[in-house]
Design a protein around this nucleic acid. Structure first.
Lengths: 189, 189
DNA sequence: ACATCTTACTAACAAACGTTAGTTTTGTGC
DNA sequence: GCACAAAACTAACGTTTGTTAGTAAGATGT
């Protein structure tokens, strides 16, 4: 259990503010105040406001990418792979909900190479997910709906989970995983 | 087919910019440039930047509220009511996708009474939806999952539809309504 | 033609923005 | 107690922000 560096503290505090108001509406003076210091002092630890966003979004995007890679390397059936992906999203939501807000809402404020890298990772992630769904349909494991509708339906629920998890945070994570997978896969009727 | 007033034009142009970068990252000069005029000239037509956001978000919120009220006044079964709500969201998404982005992402930048009104409408909307779900479960029309999981799962998909509809915009609206309802209600397995 | 209304303009404001430079305080190892 | 690094500070910078004041150009109605 290593203690957080000052830089990590700043990034964590900033991520909470970003979650509430969005990257653009949070000033360096806001972040400094939440840290109990002056804005100029932040620059002893970080390079820029952009760096905070970049660390938050790209580190988390890599976690998703790695998680997807792990799923792809298994010999599971498409349906089981989708269940693994649902679990991946829930795990990340529980552990990094603030960074997830930045990834969802503020990625477009990344600049240069960071923006390109993020966009590429997101497209690859969706493409991999889409392939799994298509394979599931062609194997007869999933009902033959438009793959895009399935992909979007699952992904938008999982991506927005961070908004909702804290409110009903009492639910056990494993119960949530099971219930969520049930609802997403087998519907509610 | 009445022609849009200058004020309505400004609000529409602004909503497109808000959708891309968010309310806080769009300046009055950005809006003016997109309108082909100077920032100061905007104030011949609108009172403030806040007013643009307020019109966008609250008018749309009222549409949702009215739609829900209509559904509640019918004698439909809970399941049929949920199908109507899905259709309501899709109709609004198709016709007001830019305002929907502002409602989803920038409502927290409303101020004063506007913010209170919006929050109240949203809470009422969710409470009504939750009641329908609970009634559906107690009638045995829906499988007995945690109502909150069902509510969140459907609502987050419908709320995020605006992000995705334009990309796959070729799909006919009626096909979309049917497919989306199928996937949300009966699952994908 | 004249008066009026609409709609644009230029110029400027005070405040807030991200960031830099230079300096002082605080904590650590010898 | 002294040297040194880490981390805070004050002060200020150039820019951008939303907005106001005052004015000019064009259209409309009489």
């Amino acid at each position: 259990m290593k203690t957080a560096t000052r830089k990590e503290e700043i990034i964590q505090v900033a991520s909470q503010l970003f979650k509430e108001k969005g990257y653009s509406a949070v000033s360096m003076r806001d972040i400094a105040q939440a840290m109990g210091m002056k804005a100029a002092s932040l620059y002893n630890h970080i390079e820029s406001k952009q760096e905070i966003l970049s660390v938050l979004v790209l580190e988390l995007a890599r976690k998703f990418t790695w998680g997807m890679d792990e799923v792809l390397q298994t010999q599971l059936s498409p349906l089981q792979k989708i269940e693994k992906i649902i679990q991946l999203h829930i795990d990340i939501t529980v552990n990094y909900s603030e960074a997830l807000a930045a990834l969802n809402n503020d990625w477009m404020h990344l600049e240069g190479q960071d923006l390109e890298d993020f966009t590429e990772m997101r497209e690859d992630y969706e493409a991999n997910f889409r392939s799994i769904i298509k394979e599931g349909i062609s194997l007869g494991q999933l009902r033959p709906h438009h793959p895009e509708v399935i992909l979007f339906s699952i992904l938008s629920t999982l991506r927005t989970l961070y908004l909702w998890y804290q409110k009903r945070g009492k639910l056990d994570v494993n119960v949530l995983k099971k219930d969520m997978a049930e609802v997403l896969l087998r519907g509610i009727v």
